[in-house]
Amino acid sequence: MTKLSLFLGCIIPNRYPGIEKATKFCLDKLGIDCNDLKGASCCPAPGVFRSFDKTTWIALASRNIALSEELGRDVLTVCNGCYGSLADANHELKKDATLKKSTNAHLEKIGKEFKGTADVRHIVEFLYDELGPENIKEMVVNPLKLRVALHYGCHLVKPSNERNLGSVERPDFFDELIEAIGAESVDYSDKMACCGAGGGVRSGLHGTSLEMVNHKLSRIQEADVDCIVNACPFCHLQFDGGQVEIKDILGIDYSIPVLHYSQLLGLALGFSSQEMGIDLNQIKNNEFIEKLKKLTED
């Protein structure tokens, strides 16, 4: 199987290390050959830096990819933003020789070169394509009977001409991975709606961004689920931290637990909620932790 290097990005190692640990545990358990990508930086974040200055964006992205090329490995991202940034930069550099040349002129100053020999993957599409739901199902030791509100996150599937992951209106590959671990992916209205964090909106226009996530949370609450599952630490931060901010500002208390798919998969593969760092979220929901305990102990 493809050899990978793990690109951490910013939010996972620096805010939600439980996702980092869960990802490493899962890859190990699934027998996937993956090394650390030492010395990597911010991807850099597409919504902000890509729109500020393309030259800087592509130079930093190409350095991250070049580090993985040196290891002879494909880049594994665990974040929709990192995936969007690195996959798009990789694609543009591979198809545009002039851009590659001008980018390499910058890289040369630090003794690096972008060659175009690596691919950029996202853990969800990687697991779906390379292992498949059936194989994952066979490895599950704790089937998790949970009602899950799945949030794909925009940049996992869009822009579709870059991603090629099928329907962007009603995709289902990720739902299959949820069902593979024994959970139910519940249909809810505005399931494909944006969480409101991207495009520099969370950082630049915080109030607007909260209104968008509040709308999504209200829809999720109507669906009566056990937890939200995402594939992106920025969406994760928006749902988890956003609930705390909404409670402070609007007085609405959702208390819906938020998990990255790596964490959910880790639980199903036999790890405890503490090992997966689920208790390190900002939203504390003891009822859910107890439920997980029961599901993983039986």
Partner: peptide, 12 residues
Amino acid sequence: LWMCATCYNCQE
């Protein structure tokens, strides 16, 4: 200009 969350709905 700064209110777009780059969700790509419109473009799709």
